[in-house]
Design a protein around this nucleic acid. Sequence first.
DNA 1: GCTTCAAATGTAACCGGTACCATACACGCT
DNA 2: AGCGTGTATGGTACCGGTTACATTTGAAGC
Lengths: 382, 382
Amino acid sequence: MGSPRARSKAENVRRRPRTATETPRPATIRDVAALCGLSIATVTRVFQGSQSVRAETRARVLESADRLGYRPNSIARALSTGTSNTIGVLIRSLVDPYWAEIANAIERRAGERGCSVLLASSQGRPDLEREKLQTFFDNRVDGVIVGGVSGEPNRWPHAGRHIPTVMLLWDSTPQPELLEELSSGPLSPRLRMLPQETLPGEWLAHVSTDDAAGGTLIARHLLDLGHRRFAFLVPPPVRSHLLRLLGMRMTLEEAGVSFGAVLPTADTFESGRAAATQLLCGNSPPTALVCTTDVIAVGAISAAHELGVKVPADVSIAGYDDIDLASYVDPPLTTLRNPMRQLGETALDLLLSGRAGETGAISHRLTGMLMARGSTGAAPIR
Amino acid sequence: MGSPRARSKAENVRRRPRTATETPRPATIRDVAALCGLSIATVTRVFQGSQSVRAETRARVLESADRLGYRPNSIARALSTGTSNTIGVLIRSLVDPYWAEIANAIERRAGERGCSVLLASSQGRPDLEREKLQTFFDNRVDGVIVGGVSGEPNRWPHAGRHIPTVMLLWDSTPQPELLEELSSGPLSPRLRMLPQETLPGEWLAHVSTDDAAGGTLIARHLLDLGHRRFAFLVPPPVRSHLLRLLGMRMTLEEAGVSFGAVLPTADTFESGRAAATQLLCGNSPPTALVCTTDVIAVGAISAAHELGVKVPADVSIAGYDDIDLASYVDPPLTTLRNPMRQLGETALDLLLSGRAGETGAISHRLTGMLMARGSTGAAPIR
DNA sequence: GCTTCAAATGTAACCGGTACCATACACGCT
DNA sequence: AGCGTGTATGGTACCGGTTACATTTGAAGC
């Protein structure tokens, strides 16, 4: 036992000596080996939980490590093993409470699974997206979750490399022509197939919400309350909004109820208010006013108040998203809440499951929950 | 030129050969060197912008690198240089819009400064705090920003190591005895010195808000409106709330106005409502009701509505924080908005300035902005 | 032509781990 | 005694960069 000990000490000394006055640098595996008179191989075995280490040896190593405050250097480990135990999360916005909740779920779950999170926000700028993704790859992340991006995945620095990637809540750019189709006339086959449409980046795993199902939940709720005259306020029709409308339209169709007017608006309080005013002042106003966004719905409620139209006695108003504000307005808004936390957790689990690296596209679609509140009620008797 | 080229190629071959069928692994510096027939040292020089490379050589290297899609491996670089270009950001919550905005500012600024962000949330749990910080250090971050933590900095894995750290918005645990002192009787020297009190972790750089100044702004605003009878609703008195009150009290004192009643409440809508009800029903109700939290203030407004007390005609109500809700309630709430973005940016700049590593405590204190809105108005004429 | 010096380039030892292979030794079997 | 077999440990070549130092090259100066 004497000779190897001497040798391993010699090996340690070979490294560049540091003077005593330097900043105390963190202990390395060699420091530990030197202190307990064992080889670095044994130390690394102990820290990897290898079975083939005598209990007594293990104790000796741990004691030395403890004394030096040794902790394995993740950087060195990453370089050596090729896996960094770090994932990259790129999301559109950190400030939007929607995304904040998702980011939180991801981070939390990642922590539980023992992996760190490099976080970046893309602010909807494709150039930043590419840049941040590149940084992730330079840092050799084990995988990437990309949430709510706008860029074209085929032009990401990904291309060609096999880096596990989960695309979270992808959405299209506005497609006004589809909204047009959807609003009037029979449903074209193309629209009927919209939910099954292949998403861009088909080689990636996808986690998304089932917006058509959400639309169905809202429509059914209002049908159950006896409503037969509907109208819809819709912001620039990105894919998810088209799907919400589609779900509603198909549900109404099944029930033999005609679809009603579809009014394009911007996604702001003021436009919602304006559009709703116009609608409620028209002849034969709807009894159910569905907005595909809470912000618009809140504007609509405000318009109703102003016109002296009672909510929900005269008109029921529903939103979509369940933003904070939804439960504070008067009356509190009936809306559809997506399972943010679950979205984040699903994305992370999918990423770490290893199935996100395969070529076959995996897709998870999560359904939201109807939050029935005071802004919807029984349809007025004519 | 022939001989060194051959040699450098030989050096490259020394590495473990990969079979052609393997996953295409990212190109390394050696691949680039081999392709352009130069040494790895030259390649690294090019990528570090070293001056002593002939323009022609540089072009040759860049061309090869480009062809191979080479990018320097940050992990290897970090191991070699000892700096990772990554900072750790540990904040209390990602979901709280307050912190979300701060986190966003930090991330954005960090991106501009070319450094990545490892983000973790502590959820107010000291055990998680320690754990996540440890992870940061294991990953050899260049520095750490710790926001809104509850743990004792002396027990962080920091201790002894010199890792640049900025403490952002530290707050104490509730100190009811100080609130007691503050509410009645003359101001003790201890209270007067509260703003200058040394914060824990005195070896760390601090970025905080000037809560006393914020309190002053609100008090002054109300004094200017002619108010002379005040009352205060206060949640469990952590340091920042004590300071808000202190600022107000000192301002009133200067103006020769007596301080008024201080009611402890919980930081919820319901308790605010209850406490306000009690206050407004008492004899000699205040004309100015100041809450050190918006949530409480919104509850107070609701109480006033219910009692038929007009806001601001009969009573002015002010909050603190400027949460989203504040501008949506009716009337919109006068409150104090802290410069979230600036807080985040200041913390990051301070961290990267290198001054956060010194022993001398650096402290930045940022002042908020009064958001005068509809909930405050001229004092009623007696 | 030869020395001198600076600029350009090459060599190899790091950084701190991991993992493959070698070695040493104890034990049980023929 | 000789020979595997297995277990515990040591030695060392990696991972992909950086950097101190060595070497080569070319031009100027004599």
